[in-house]
Design a protein around this nucleic acid. Structure first.
Ligand SMILES: NC(=O)c1ccc[n+]([C@@H]2O[C@H](COP(=O)([O-])OP(=O)(O)OC[C@H]3O[C@@H](n4cnc5c(N)ncnc54)[C@H](O)[C@@H]3O)[C@@H](O)[C@H]2O)c1
Ligand SMILES: NC(=O)c1ccc[n+]([C@@H]2O[C@H](COP(=O)([O-])OP(=O)(O)OC[C@H]3O[C@@H](n4cnc5c(N)ncnc54)[C@H](O)[C@@H]3O)[C@@H](O)[C@H]2O)c1
Lengths: 212, 212
DNA sequence: GCTTATTTGTGAAATAATTTTCAATAAAAA
DNA sequence: TTTTTATTGAAAATTATTTCACAAATAAGC
């Protein structure tokens, strides 16, 4: 399953490259250099070449990279050639915005099921996604083979809900709550902490002025 | 302004520590060890001690850290002892969710103005925040001395809107669009790319199984 | 076909971040 | 008071990531 373990920092940049390659493809460009890519994605060109090189010699010297073959390669690597279903738990303020946003437009991920405790939401459809009561969480996760959950519940229930999701077989969590949830080693959590991002931004403005 | 330049990785963790210190404070705990903190925030205890040590000797050997004085210290460092105003541009799907979410509850940041091109939104109030037309962007940013912008507009206008905001004196941008915007060196961009996060999560599940 | 201009891929160096280790110190227990 | 226990702070080691710099390869121009 793992071809060769690439650095995590590289892995996080792959979707950025993938996205821009799609844009190039759509505008019928068929070659691109690391320098050109660098400007678009704001990553140093040497870093890009290094990143690509983990996967072998994908480019041609004096020419650059072939957009289509690179795109095909990354599509494979990122598993974007087949659809991945995700579940969303907590159809509130933020949850609704995410449901409404069609991830599928930009990637091969779609939210195929959502869950909430509110009885009035259960068994309705929001933005084309069926909402189930929490009592059905486990069953639906298992039936639909869902391995990824987007967590947008209130902080105080985040750990419980996480535990339930993991019991249902979930392996990855995109966590929007400020709580750092505890999970077993084989489950991956990606935290999106917006208050944090704002505070970090303020810190950098106050303390890292006038240079990069 | 800069006391001593601390590592960026450390800076990004400061709000996490700050948040948990507040929780400890609210539950009347008055001491905490790096080990205890480590479990709550999921950061190695040695990393925590190292992080803290950039600011001097804040703890006591054999005892730990005094919650209140640590909290006071971080409050100062993170500028959380005074209110920071931010603007939000693009009151759509995601923008509305963020407006509705009261950052001020968790931090001393609040959205004090929002902007949108839609004429029907101009001069209304959403979730207690006044919405202005884009023609007033520059004036309001300058009048209210807003240095931080939350960007939730469609991708294709993101660069233009960014340029306008910077012309209005903005120094930090929390960018929710997938576009990597171009900014001068003295402006900081923090990207929150949700499609990306999901794709990265999938990559890690597929390629980094069974270990950390 | 020869020359020049491009651009990759990668060793080596530089920089950044984490982790190990442990002496020093303070608190708590005896 | 003395001993034991807990815990920090920092030096050193390790690991991770980025960047430099350039030979090698190719394309494009002549
Ligand atoms: N809204 C934002 O812009 C924003 C920004 C940053 C962080 N967050 C975080 O995202 C999370 C959600 O925020 P929100 O503003 O959407 O809150 P919200 O209260 O609007 O939505 C939470 C939803 O979760 C549901 N819920 C409650 N308990 C549940 C349970 N046990 N199981 C399943 N569903 C349950 C509620 O019924 C509600 O629909 C919070 O943790 C918040 O801190 C939100
Ligand atoms: N909604 C999500 O959950 C989500 C998730 C990931 C990324 N995003 C990104 O966030 C951005 C906004 O997404 P959304 O779903 O809220 O879109 P949206 O279309 O619902 O909202 C965009 C808003 O921006 C306004 N706008 C358009 N042009 C403008 C301009 N020139 N100046 C000011 N305002 C302008 C529109 O009137 C609209 O209200 C997009 O770039 C999207 O890719 C959204």
């Amino acid at each position: 399953m793992t071809e060769t373990k690439i650095p995590k920092a590289t892995a996080k940049r792959l979707p950025i490259y993938y996205r821009y390659l799609n844009i190039l493809h759509d505008s019928d460009k068929n070659r691109v250099s690391s320098t050109e890519l660098s400007e678009a994605v704001k990553v140093d060109s040497a870093t890009i070449r290094r990143d690509f090189s983990y996967f072998g010699a994908l480019g041609k010297r004096g020419y650059g990279y072939d957009v289509d073959s690179l795109l095909k390669f990354f599509k494979k690597i990122l598993n974007q050639d087949k659809l991945t279903n995700a579940a969303l738990i907590g159809v509130g303020n933020l949850g609704n915005a995410l449901l409404n946003f069609n991830f599928h437009q930009n990637s091969n991920v779609r939210i195929s099921a959502a869950f909430d405790v509110r009885p009035d939401l259960a068994n309705t459809v929001q933005s084309g996604v069926p909402i189930y009561p929490m009592s059905e969480l486990r069953k639906q996760l298992e039936d639909q083979q869902i391995k990824i959950v987007i967590l947008t519940v209130p902080e105080n229930v985040a750990q419980n809900v996480t535990d339930d999701a993991i019991a249902g077989g979930v392996r990855g969590i995109l966590n929007f709550t400020p709580l750092r949830v505890s999970v077993p080693a084989n489950v991956r959590v990606q935290n999106v902490d917006l208050t944090n991002e704002l505070q970090t931004l303020i810190y950098f403005l106050d303390h890292y002025n006038e240079e990069e």
